[in-house]
Amino acid sequence: MSKTTSIIEAKDVDVFYGEKQALNGISLDIPENKVTSLIGPSGCGKSTFLRCINRMNDLVDICRVSGDIRISGQDIYAPEVDVVALRANVGMVFQKPNPFPKSIFENVAYGPKIHGLTANKAEMEELVEWSLRKAGLWNEVKDRLNETGTGLSGGQQQRLCIARAIAVKPRVILMDEPCSALDPIATAIIEELIDELRENFSIVIVTHSMQQAARVSQRTAFFHMGNLVESGNTKNIFTSPKDERTQNYITGRIG
Protein backbone atom coordinates (compact mmCIF):
# COMPACT_ATOMS: atom_id res chain seq x y z
CA MET A 1 0.00 0.00 0.00
CA SER A 2 1.51 3.24 -1.17
CA LYS A 3 1.75 6.27 1.01
CA THR A 4 -0.75 8.98 0.03
CA THR A 5 -1.42 12.51 1.10
CA SER A 6 -4.92 13.62 2.00
CA ILE A 7 -6.50 16.40 0.04
CA ILE A 8 -9.67 16.65 2.07
CA GLU A 9 -9.70 16.36 5.83
CA ALA A 10 -13.08 16.38 7.53
CA LYS A 11 -13.27 16.47 11.28
CA ASP A 12 -16.38 16.17 13.48
CA VAL A 13 -18.79 17.29 10.81
CA ASP A 14 -22.39 17.61 12.01
CA VAL A 15 -25.22 18.56 9.68
CA PHE A 16 -28.69 19.57 10.74
CA TYR A 17 -31.75 20.04 8.59
CA GLY A 18 -33.81 22.21 10.88
CA GLU A 19 -34.16 20.09 14.02
CA LYS A 20 -33.18 16.87 12.38
CA GLN A 21 -29.56 15.80 12.55
CA ALA A 22 -28.41 14.29 9.27
CA LEU A 23 -24.75 13.67 10.03
CA ASN A 24 -23.12 12.81 13.35
CA GLY A 25 -19.51 13.84 13.82
CA ILE A 26 -18.08 12.60 10.57
CA SER A 27 -14.30 12.52 10.41
CA LEU A 28 -12.86 11.32 7.15
CA ASP A 29 -9.70 11.91 5.15
CA ILE A 30 -9.86 11.73 1.40
CA PRO A 31 -6.64 10.97 -0.44
CA GLU A 32 -5.28 12.91 -3.36
CA ASN A 33 -5.47 11.48 -6.88
CA LYS A 34 -7.53 8.53 -5.80
CA VAL A 35 -11.17 7.62 -6.12
CA THR A 36 -13.01 7.48 -2.84
CA SER A 37 -16.49 6.05 -2.81
CA LEU A 38 -19.13 6.78 -0.23
CA ILE A 39 -21.59 3.93 0.16
CA GLY A 40 -24.49 3.14 2.40
CA PRO A 41 -28.25 2.68 2.37
CA SER A 42 -30.63 5.46 1.23
CA GLY A 43 -30.83 8.35 3.65
CA CYS A 44 -27.57 7.42 5.38
CA GLY A 45 -26.07 10.86 4.80
CA LYS A 46 -23.53 10.06 2.11
CA SER A 47 -24.92 12.64 -0.34
CA THR A 48 -25.24 15.17 2.45
CA PHE A 49 -21.57 14.70 3.25
CA LEU A 50 -20.64 15.03 -0.41
CA ARG A 51 -22.53 18.32 -0.64
CA CYS A 52 -20.69 19.66 2.38
CA ILE A 53 -17.44 19.43 0.45
CA ASN A 54 -18.41 22.11 -2.07
CA ARG A 55 -20.93 23.78 0.21
CA MET A 56 -23.95 23.03 -1.98
CA ASN A 57 -25.78 22.63 1.30
CA ASP A 58 -25.59 26.39 1.69
CA LEU A 59 -28.44 26.56 -0.82
CA VAL A 60 -30.79 24.81 1.59
CA ASP A 61 -32.16 27.44 3.93
CA ILE A 62 -32.67 25.19 6.91
CA CYS A 63 -29.36 23.39 6.62
CA ARG A 64 -26.69 23.99 9.25
CA VAL A 65 -23.16 22.59 9.09
CA SER A 66 -20.67 22.51 11.94
CA GLY A 67 -17.26 20.95 12.32
CA ASP A 68 -14.18 21.37 10.23
CA ILE A 69 -13.57 20.55 6.59
CA ARG A 70 -10.21 21.42 5.05
CA ILE A 71 -9.18 21.14 1.48
CA SER A 72 -5.44 21.48 0.86
CA GLY A 73 -5.28 22.60 4.42
CA GLN A 74 -7.73 25.51 3.99
CA ASP A 75 -10.86 25.66 6.09
CA ILE A 76 -13.63 25.88 3.53
CA TYR A 77 -16.18 27.09 6.07
CA ALA A 78 -13.97 30.00 7.15
CA PRO A 79 -15.80 33.32 6.85
CA GLU A 80 -13.40 34.74 4.27
CA VAL A 81 -14.06 31.87 1.87
CA ASP A 82 -15.96 32.74 -1.27
CA VAL A 83 -18.28 29.83 -1.90
CA VAL A 84 -18.22 30.55 -5.59
CA ALA A 85 -14.43 30.37 -5.76
CA LEU A 86 -14.52 27.19 -3.71
CA ARG A 87 -16.86 25.54 -6.18
CA ALA A 88 -14.54 26.48 -9.01
CA ASN A 89 -11.96 24.27 -7.30
CA VAL A 90 -14.34 21.51 -6.30
CA GLY A 91 -16.34 20.41 -9.32
CA MET A 92 -19.53 18.40 -9.13
CA VAL A 93 -21.31 15.89 -11.33
CA PHE A 94 -24.91 15.26 -10.46
CA GLN A 95 -27.14 12.23 -10.32
CA LYS A 96 -29.15 13.12 -13.38
CA PRO A 97 -27.18 14.48 -16.32
CA ASN A 98 -27.97 18.19 -16.35
CA PRO A 99 -26.30 19.84 -19.32
CA PHE A 100 -27.33 23.42 -19.92
CA PRO A 101 -29.80 23.67 -22.79
CA LYS A 102 -27.08 25.31 -24.85
CA SER A 103 -24.59 24.07 -27.40
CA ILE A 104 -22.06 21.40 -26.47
CA PHE A 105 -19.25 23.92 -26.86
CA GLU A 106 -20.92 26.48 -24.63
CA ASN A 107 -21.59 23.86 -21.99
CA VAL A 108 -17.91 23.14 -21.63
CA ALA A 109 -16.79 26.73 -22.16
CA TYR A 110 -19.11 28.17 -19.53
CA GLY A 111 -16.94 27.41 -16.49
CA PRO A 112 -13.66 28.69 -17.95
CA LYS A 113 -15.52 31.74 -19.21
CA ILE A 114 -16.95 32.82 -15.86
CA HIS A 115 -13.72 32.06 -14.07
CA GLY A 116 -11.63 33.83 -16.68
CA LEU A 117 -9.34 30.88 -17.33
CA THR A 118 -8.59 31.54 -20.96
CA ALA A 119 -7.18 34.61 -22.61
CA ASN A 120 -8.56 34.22 -26.10
CA LYS A 121 -10.78 32.20 -28.39
CA ALA A 122 -8.02 29.84 -29.51
CA GLU A 123 -7.14 28.97 -25.94
CA MET A 124 -10.79 28.39 -25.18
CA GLU A 125 -11.18 26.08 -28.16
CA GLU A 126 -8.13 24.18 -27.07
CA LEU A 127 -9.42 23.87 -23.53
CA VAL A 128 -12.85 22.69 -24.70
CA GLU A 129 -11.25 20.07 -26.93
CA TRP A 130 -8.95 18.94 -24.12
CA SER A 131 -11.88 18.61 -21.71
CA LEU A 132 -14.00 16.69 -24.19
CA ARG A 133 -11.09 14.39 -25.01
CA LYS A 134 -10.48 13.81 -21.32
CA ALA A 135 -14.14 12.96 -20.92
CA GLY A 136 -13.91 10.57 -23.85
CA LEU A 137 -16.54 12.43 -25.77
CA TRP A 138 -14.48 14.31 -28.35
CA ASN A 139 -14.71 11.78 -31.16
CA GLU A 140 -18.47 11.54 -30.78
CA VAL A 141 -19.22 15.23 -30.79
CA LYS A 142 -16.35 16.99 -32.58
CA ASP A 143 -18.50 17.55 -35.68
CA ARG A 144 -21.46 18.93 -33.84
CA LEU A 145 -20.11 21.18 -31.16
CA ASN A 146 -22.79 23.74 -31.96
CA GLU A 147 -25.66 21.36 -31.43
CA THR A 148 -27.48 21.50 -28.15
CA GLY A 149 -26.16 19.38 -25.31
CA THR A 150 -29.60 18.12 -24.37
CA GLY A 151 -29.79 16.29 -27.71
CA LEU A 152 -27.14 13.77 -26.67
CA SER A 153 -27.87 10.35 -25.19
CA GLY A 154 -27.97 9.99 -21.41
CA GLY A 155 -24.47 8.58 -21.17
CA GLN A 156 -23.08 11.22 -23.50
CA GLN A 157 -24.85 13.93 -21.51
CA GLN A 158 -23.21 12.69 -18.33
CA ARG A 159 -19.80 12.65 -19.97
CA LEU A 160 -20.52 16.19 -21.20
CA CYS A 161 -21.22 17.15 -17.59
CA ILE A 162 -17.91 15.59 -16.62
CA ALA A 163 -16.13 17.49 -19.39
CA ARG A 164 -17.84 20.64 -18.17
CA ALA A 165 -16.63 19.96 -14.63
CA ILE A 166 -13.00 19.25 -15.57
CA ALA A 167 -12.79 22.23 -17.93
CA VAL A 168 -12.20 24.49 -14.94
CA LYS A 169 -9.47 22.09 -13.76
CA PRO A 170 -10.68 21.62 -10.21
CA ARG A 171 -8.67 19.80 -7.57
CA VAL A 172 -11.55 17.63 -6.54
CA ILE A 173 -14.49 16.26 -8.47
CA LEU A 174 -17.56 15.21 -6.53
CA MET A 175 -19.87 12.73 -8.19
CA ASP A 176 -23.32 12.12 -6.79
CA GLU A 177 -24.48 8.74 -8.11
CA PRO A 178 -23.37 9.72 -11.60
CA CYS A 179 -24.55 6.48 -13.21
CA SER A 180 -27.87 5.94 -11.52
CA ALA A 181 -29.78 7.29 -14.52
CA LEU A 182 -27.74 5.40 -17.11
CA ASP A 183 -27.86 2.00 -18.77
CA PRO A 184 -25.10 -0.60 -18.09
CA ILE A 185 -23.09 0.18 -21.22
CA ALA A 186 -23.04 3.92 -20.54
CA THR A 187 -22.21 3.11 -16.93
CA ALA A 188 -19.23 1.01 -17.96
CA ILE A 189 -17.88 3.84 -20.12
CA ILE A 190 -18.23 6.35 -17.28
CA GLU A 191 -16.54 3.98 -14.83
CA GLU A 192 -13.61 3.57 -17.16
CA LEU A 193 -13.46 7.32 -17.49
CA ILE A 194 -13.45 7.83 -13.73
CA ASP A 195 -10.49 5.51 -13.49
CA GLU A 196 -8.59 7.58 -16.04
CA LEU A 197 -9.47 10.88 -14.43
CA ARG A 198 -7.94 9.79 -11.16
CA GLU A 199 -4.56 10.53 -12.70
CA ASN A 200 -5.29 14.26 -12.56
CA PHE A 201 -8.08 14.73 -10.07
CA SER A 202 -9.12 13.55 -6.66
CA ILE A 203 -12.55 12.04 -7.01
CA VAL A 204 -15.24 11.43 -4.43
CA ILE A 205 -18.14 9.37 -5.68
CA VAL A 206 -21.40 8.53 -3.98
CA THR A 207 -22.84 5.32 -5.26
CA HIS A 208 -25.63 2.91 -4.55
CA SER A 209 -23.94 0.08 -6.30
CA MET A 210 -21.38 -1.83 -4.30
CA GLN A 211 -20.01 -3.39 -7.45
CA GLN A 212 -19.36 0.07 -8.77
CA ALA A 213 -17.61 1.08 -5.59
CA ALA A 214 -15.50 -2.04 -5.81
CA ARG A 215 -14.69 -1.45 -9.46
CA VAL A 216 -13.78 2.22 -9.47
CA SER A 217 -12.57 3.21 -6.05
CA GLN A 218 -9.40 2.70 -4.10
CA ARG A 219 -10.92 3.91 -0.85
CA THR A 220 -14.41 3.33 0.49
CA ALA A 221 -16.34 4.89 3.33
CA PHE A 222 -19.50 3.25 4.61
CA PHE A 223 -22.23 5.49 6.02
CA HIS A 224 -25.17 4.34 8.07
CA MET A 225 -27.90 6.47 9.63
CA GLY A 226 -25.80 9.61 9.63
CA ASN A 227 -22.72 7.91 11.00
CA LEU A 228 -19.49 7.00 9.31
CA VAL A 229 -19.27 3.33 10.20
CA GLU A 230 -15.93 2.57 8.73
CA SER A 231 -13.57 3.60 5.98
CA GLY A 232 -10.44 2.22 4.44
CA ASN A 233 -9.04 0.51 1.40
CA THR A 234 -11.83 -0.64 -0.83
CA LYS A 235 -10.43 -4.13 -0.93
CA ASN A 236 -10.35 -4.37 2.83
CA ILE A 237 -13.86 -2.99 3.28
CA PHE A 238 -15.30 -5.50 0.87
CA THR A 239 -13.34 -8.51 1.92
CA SER A 240 -12.96 -8.06 5.64
CA PRO A 241 -15.29 -5.42 7.04
CA LYS A 242 -14.68 -4.74 10.70
CA ASP A 243 -18.20 -3.61 11.56
CA GLU A 244 -21.21 -5.88 11.51
CA ARG A 245 -23.35 -3.22 9.83
CA THR A 246 -20.91 -2.99 6.94
CA GLN A 247 -20.90 -6.73 6.70
CA ASN A 248 -24.68 -6.81 6.60
CA TYR A 249 -24.87 -4.10 3.99
CA ILE A 250 -22.38 -5.53 1.57
CA THR A 251 -23.92 -8.94 1.84
CA GLY A 252 -27.34 -7.46 1.16
CA ARG A 253 -28.94 -7.88 4.56
CA ILE A 254 -29.62 -4.18 5.05
CA GLY A 255 -30.18 -1.45 2.48
Binding site: M56, L59, V84, A88, G91, N98, P101, G111, I114, A165
Partner: peptide
Amino acid sequence: VPPSIREAALGMGASPVQATFHHVTPL
Protein backbone atom coordinates in the same frame (compact mmCIF):
# COMPACT_ATOMS: atom_id res chain seq x y z
CA VAL B 1 -37.15 25.90 -14.63
CA PRO B 2 -35.83 22.63 -13.19
CA PRO B 3 -33.61 23.04 -10.12
CA SER B 4 -31.01 20.83 -11.78
CA ILE B 5 -30.08 23.75 -14.04
CA ARG B 6 -29.44 25.96 -11.02
CA GLU B 7 -27.42 23.20 -9.36
CA ALA B 8 -25.39 22.63 -12.48
CA ALA B 9 -24.45 26.29 -12.70
CA LEU B 10 -23.76 26.68 -8.99
CA GLY B 11 -21.77 23.45 -8.97
CA MET B 12 -19.58 24.98 -11.69
CA GLY B 13 -18.79 27.82 -9.38
CA ALA B 14 -21.21 30.31 -10.91
CA SER B 15 -22.44 32.87 -8.41
CA PRO B 16 -26.19 32.94 -7.76
CA VAL B 17 -26.49 36.09 -9.88
CA GLN B 18 -24.58 34.43 -12.71
CA ALA B 19 -26.60 31.22 -12.44
CA THR B 20 -29.82 33.19 -12.55
CA PHE B 21 -28.99 35.51 -15.42
CA HIS B 22 -26.94 33.07 -17.52
CA HIS B 23 -29.13 30.01 -17.19
CA VAL B 24 -32.43 30.28 -15.34
CA THR B 25 -33.82 33.51 -16.76
CA PRO B 26 -33.10 32.69 -20.43
CA LEU B 27 -35.04 29.45 -19.97
